[in-house]
Amino acid sequence: MKTRAVLIAVVAFLGMVDALYLSLERNAGPIPCHITRGCNDVLTSRYSAVAGIPISWFGLAFYVTVFSLAVFTIFETEPPASRPLRWIFYLSGIALVISALLVGIQAFTLKAFCEYCLLSAALVLTIFLLSPHAFPRTHSP
């Protein structure tokens, strides 16, 4: 359980750096892509912000929350230690649906990909896949 929490914390930390980088770059002018083409198109499109707040800020809030929950799981000494991981499971499930929508918008509406956004989607998927093990296994009698 704690090994998984450590892995989730590491992935969430990478997500924090990615989301912060995107937030900083978004305010610093045109954004160069290194692998894909179209970072600028994605990050300046009308889908890149909700109510004027850049999506990267929501991503940052998600990663900080997940990182915090994972760290609390690592330091938890009393049962049930799995409670924060369950929250990670629910949160990353919601984030995964949103990430899938955003990747869909990149692929079908904007027809441009932003590598940093794709990395974020991959990190969300990794967190989601790591978190279900928080649930206790049921054994049949």
Binding site: F13, M16, V17, L20, L24, E25, A28
Partner: peptide, 15 residues
């Protein structure tokens, strides 16, 4: 971790 992430992001986004 937040402080380290901010420093890393600022370092990566330098022009």
């Amino acid at each position: 971790a937040v402080v380290v992430a901010v420093v890393a992001a600022v370092y990566l986004s330098r022009r």
